[in-house]
Design a protein around this nucleic acid. Structure first.
Lengths: 181, 181
DNA sequence: GTCTATATCGTGATAGAC
DNA sequence: GTCTATCACGATATAGAC
């Protein structure tokens, strides 16, 4: 459905500017020129809507940043750098991903799957670096992968409270730590 | 006021079991045998109440774990280990700390201050290790401190989604990475 | 497919009696 | 200090017309 995509794209735009906390279904509906009920015609619930917004965001980021960098780790840094341009999306992600920690949250499965994928991707990346001799082969790729994802998430919390914190810089520093260890 | 403390202690207990998402002021009131209005007599708003609950938690953790360990880093690990016994509190903290990222959130100042303190404490700890020759003096204590706090926060998100993730183990691994670098 | 209108709900806040 | 009662509100969800 083209309309669904149109809604999600518009939603990303609104939320990037207004943040998650202030954004109701009604406002997203306004942004696409639909009524609240009209918008919910395309999604089974508010929670599903926001989950799909986040999925769309991943998709947009992936196609924007993954291909344009030679090494995958550079793409990762680029996404993080980009994040500081879209505070509302950072807030959206941080908020919903922690809500999804609740056993009954409808987006829980989505996030479990998402972390599984990112974890696999990242630990593969590290193993590749190990194979190439750029990271000590003794290091535990899985644990390091989890630590990178955790650092990226946790830095968002700090950055929202103090935007002078440079998220990308910190993650790059962690990378430096790992590559020289 | 003794009553305020009594309320906060009871609240910690309820939330540790039920989590944040499900917990309304009314339920906390029930737990201390007060009406909702009766409880709010002691706090200016729901948001202030939850902020104070988190402050109380820090206080409890600090007195429980800081003194019983010789080195401060061990206390840090102990708190993290303890966290996996109280999922509701992890959820509470994760949730409110990200909500506080909003510029208008009443608990924003509280968290800014809290991070400032933890950051200072942690980077001092690292500098001490550097002075003792256990951490390379070339490393940037401030950035590493932020990375530890970020990792601890981010691991909570992952752990809530997958409790088989060992938060303390991961943080200890990061410590190992830093001490051998 | 989209709208209008409304049901329904939870819940935080407040007024005022005791 | 504490309760009862009520308000106010901001949602989301849904029924039913067009």
């Amino acid at each position: 459905m083209a309309k669904r995509e149109e809604i999600l794209t518009a939603a990303l735009d609104v939320i990037a500017r207004n943040g998650y906390r202030r954004t109701s279904v009604r406002e997203l509906a306004d942004a696409v020129g639909l009524s609240q009920a009209g918008l919910l015609h395309y999604f089974s619930s508010k929670e599903e809507l926001f989950q799909e917004i986040l999925r769309k965001r991943d998709e947009v980021d992936a196609s924007a940043f993954e291909s344009m960098h030679e090494s995958p780790i550079e793409g990762f840094f680029a996404v993080i750098r980009h994040n500081s341009e879209v505070p509302g999306l950072v807030q959206l992600y941080a908020q919903v991903s922690t809500e999804a920690g609740d056993p009954d949250h409808p987006a829980r499965e989505f996030f479990i799957e998402r972390y599984k994928q990112f974890r696999a991707m990242f630990s593969q990346l590290i193993r590749d670096e190990q194979a190439a001799g750029r990271i000590d082969a003794d290091l535990d790729a899985d644990r390091i992968a989890n630590l990178f994802l955790a650092a990226a998430d946790g830095l968002q919390t700090q950055w929202m409270l103090d935007p002078s914190i440079d998220m990308a810089d910190h993650v790059a520093y962690l990378w430096q730590l790992v590559t020289r260890a």
